[in-house]
Design a protein around this nucleic acid. Structure first.
Lengths: 331, 331
DNA sequence: CTGAAAGCGCTTACAG
DNA sequence: CTGAAAGCGCTTACAG
């Protein structure tokens, strides 16, 4: 009662294994009669090719891993980034007829397991999402010559093609907007120190303030709504006179606005708020959130194209997508 | 510049392939000297076993697929069920040293691709989550003798071991509670007709009402918050005199409470509300939601154990976990 | 158009 | 304890 093999199908159809292989793989050079006989045998026996055997000889698997370096709680959180990215990447990948394998690598043990899986040749390529600073995955993967790209610029010392949006430029635009509105004490809630995106946005904030002789006022969050709330409270305590805040992502901005409301500050009258991402919820806050739009979908699609291109021997140059200031009512 | 093979490592270490294989797989019957030589060669060459080749001979992959039959938008929605289940199942599976492969099968095309992947022998077993009525996956999988289990009772005609909670009993407890509180016109917002869990809860609701001569008042939702809101409006329009509603999941209950608030009905004074699931948000509604607790984590863990057991030749009897009425203030 | 044969990279009885 | 050899289930030049 084991699953039938090519051999068994060939025997039943009265042909060679090569012929069965040809019709199973859509080969065109088979006479209709043999073709029919094979098809019948395949149906009758319920034959399905063993993919391990096939990939052993073809040296390809037609699968791509989508590795998200976060624990499930964060991936399945209220941050719509993951859903958007995974959906866009999946549909792009499926269009290219590749199976998408989703792997969550949130813990050290999980990380090691994923590394073993990827370097073991189970996939033709890998797309890394949400990498953190000390991530050992890129090095291991590239050492094994598995084509890989990152959505988001990786930490400095790894040599990995990537797609990102212009985090620095976006942050600069946000802070400049605040300055143009006449704000004088502009604070920021930055992202986690081990994520490049967060750091780039902080750098953009600092660059503009330095150029205008303003003092930096910085609190750190971890991109969750709750951390935005906590950070905002911290900021208000440190500097009650602040009149604006640039928050490194919209989700934290939602938390920050809640903290401001609780502290009795009006937005934007007392404190102007600018976020980053332009998630859907940004349109429904009270008041609607001014933010930097980040093209998640295009980023994901571009990352997939970059990966597919590299697997095809193509260009490895990074791609950086522009961001856009979306002015609503919070600043 | 290709990746090194066992053969190459053997040549370098001056031993046979068999010996390399033994040390790589932790075989104990190798003299320390050879062992060291092999280890050194492995390190120097950066050898990593080709898993396709290994699984071809061992007939196992040590991977388990977690197939969620939903589109990304729903999996990554505000419904914490998916995160909870995926996390619990993953950690249980990793404890058993299995690689977890997450696959989203939300579209027909995706479904076909996943089926090909699973029947192609890429995994040792599969755990199905959130199956819908007409799902062809179970049949295809079992035909190929791939061990599989479902989290949630599958639609009637497939023969698939499963773990579920007592949906009927839970719904009955909810409605009985409403009756005991003296409610007379008890409506329900049911889940989608193609999902067994939703139907079982509806059956429980109907069973209790029939036993007490009450009329059923039914609206249908799809387990999302928004659908709960819409369904509640519908219900109020159909029967303005209703004084209680049993909602088939908490997320829809949140939507329903919003609709009630908008319609000027007080909870529980005018309309009592009971949900199902006991998600975290249920504790923070205004008023806190009375609901049926469903042990997501234990369910996921039990499903994994059932699968692992079956793969080990063990029992295939379904497991049904009890639910519990959690009385808060909404009813 | 079709088949015999080699080979993908491993593991595992079987001798020794 | 170690190695030669068979074999896992496929694909693909190569002849014919």
């Amino acid at each position: 009662m084991k699953r039938p093999t090519l051999e068994a199908v060939a025997a039943r159809a009265g042909v060679s294994r090569a012929t069965v292989s040809r019709v199973v793989n859509g080969g065109t050079t088979v006479t209709p009669e043999l073709r029919d006989a094979v098809m019948r045998a395949v149906d009758e026996m319920g034959y399905v090719p063993n993919l391990a055997a096939r990939s052993l000889v073809t040296q390809r698997t037609d699968s791509i891993a989508l590795v998200v370096s976060e624990p499930p709680t964060r991936v399945f959180s209220d941050d719509p980034m993951f859903a958007t990215v995974i959906r866009a990447a999946s549909s792009e990948l499926e269009e290219a007829d590749r199976q998408v394998i989703l792997m969550l690598a949130g813990t050290p043990a999980g990380h090691a397991r994923v590394e073993r899986y990827l370097t073991g040749g189970h996939v033709d390529g890998v797309m890394l999402v949400s990498m953190h600073g000390a991530d050992p995955l890129p090095a291991a993967i590239t050492r094994m010559r598995v084509p890989a790209v990152s959505l988001g610029r990786p930490a400095v010392n790894v040599n990995l093609p990537y797609v990102d949006n212009d985090n620095v430029g976006g942050a600069e635009a946000a802070v400049r907007h605040l300055l143009e509105r006449g704000r004088r004490r502009i604070a920021t809630i930055a992202g986690p120190p081990d994520m490049v995106g967060g750091q780039d946005r902080l750098a953009g904030y600092r660059a503009v303030l330095q150029g205008s002789d303003r003092r930096s006022i910085v609190a750190i969050g971890d991109f969750t709504r709750e951390s935005g709330l906590v950070a905002m409270r911290q900021l208000l305590e440190d500097d009650p006179g602040l009149d604006a805040v640039f928050v490194a992502n919209d989700l934290m901005a939602l938390g920050a606005m809640k903290a401001l409301r609780q502290a009795g500050r009006r937005v934007p009258d007392d404190v102007a708020v600018v976020g980053f991402d332009d998630i859907e919820a940004a349109r429904y806050t009270e008041p609607p959130l001014t933010t930097i739009r980040q093209p998640f979908r295009e980023q994901a699609a571009a990352t997939v194209r970059l990966l597919l291109g590299i697997m095809d021997g193509g260009d490895v140059a990074p791609v950086v997508l522009p961001t856009e200031l979306i002015v609503r009512e919070s600043a």
